[in-house]
Design a protein around this nucleic acid. Sequence first.
DNA 1: ATGCGCTTGTGAAATTGGTCACAATGTAGG
DNA 2: CCTACATTGTGACCAATTTCACAAGCGCAT
Lengths: 213, 213
Amino acid sequence: MNRRIPDSTVRRISHYLRALEVMGVQGTPTVSSEELAQQGGTTAAQVRKDLSHFGSFGKRGLGYSVPELASRLRDILGLTCRWRVVLVGAGRIGSALFEYPHFARRGYDCVAVLDNDPEKIGMSWGPVRIRPVEELELVVDALKVDIAILAVPAEAAQTLAERAVAAGARAILNFAAVQLRVPAHVHVAYVNLVVELEALSFAITQNGKGRRK
Amino acid sequence: MNRRIPDSTVRRISHYLRALEVMGVQGTPTVSSEELAQQGGTTAAQVRKDLSHFGSFGKRGLGYSVPELASRLRDILGLTCRWRVVLVGAGRIGSALFEYPHFARRGYDCVAVLDNDPEKIGMSWGPVRIRPVEELELVVDALKVDIAILAVPAEAAQTLAERAVAAGARAILNFAAVQLRVPAHVHVAYVNLVVELEALSFAITQNGKGRRK
DNA sequence: ATGCGCTTGTGAAATTGGTCACAATGTAGG
DNA sequence: CCTACATTGTGACCAATTTCACAAGCGCAT
């Protein structure tokens, strides 16, 4: 086991965990790799290979204990502590994110919200007051922020990423449609609507030749 | 050239296109694979390999003509026609999406918005009136919808996907945190915030061992 | 017209990730 | 206790993707 873990494995683990949590609520005691594969949209062998990177959690002939495996996966994904997050950009996407119920529930605390619109600065979102984006360094440093979420226009993203990193952020979730250039020790994840839509229109175009009718 | 195109190639093409459009506005006439690679967060060889799947668009010794390559990439990605999209779910995410300026500008027309909340049904979002989700089949069929965007709770996603597909949708953009099971001819793209966040906390945990301080 | 420098396009090699098959190992039942 | 059966964990294969290296092509300067 161990070595470097493929990114795709990590993503799938995240899916397995969500499936396990549903099963946990339903009271299912054990699950086989075959069943997990169905939920996660993959194959039984893939499930076992993914898990084998981290150890062996199952019982041969029986499968996996749902609560136990869920707990192990939470450990693996680093969900046993709470992460401090700063949200940069209080626009539509930022607001949708902030309200997302699973967000806080899964261990992410939004300790600050920043924006550069004077109209928005000072507003209160629940317990958090929107601050000027100039305070980014202050916030990241003083509140020991781990993850910066960039929900800002593409032009602003690179600069803000650099500032967040310089102030100590170790990971960035980027909603802007640009590739960020950051030091190797900083991790970046992308959520990019446009890329996904364009991948779809590419796929449709390839297949059925053009749009309907 | 040609054969099956890797998904990762398609995503990168989408990035190249966006970089090219910025250069186009700035008036840059030509670009090398090296420069494109910088913008797209990859390597020059990768850029050339990606493009070579579709033909040869550059001039040796000189690079690529920015407007010409942009135009070719738009063709490849299927952005020269407009796609008809139905948005299912008029919550926070749906609303953020709907307002996203690049959405319409890049060739996607949101021809209908559906929700199951009686409070919302009948409201007008710009030129579009929110309809009951029961009308999904009607809308997909009558308005010749190509792409269904699911911005709904995880429990509802699978059923709605099946209904959209049965009514004729050929692609689905899924914001819900479940893997969809659909026939092979239907393309699905996922936007999953939770997976990305968990991939980040995994990465931070692996590296620096736990959160800051 | 020729040579030089730069940059593309591409087969071949290397790497990475996924699939398969099966031995190992557990449970349950007689 | 022993046999039948189910399901895991994994090493060996296989497939896909990325990297590498270089011949071929283009434009400019002389």
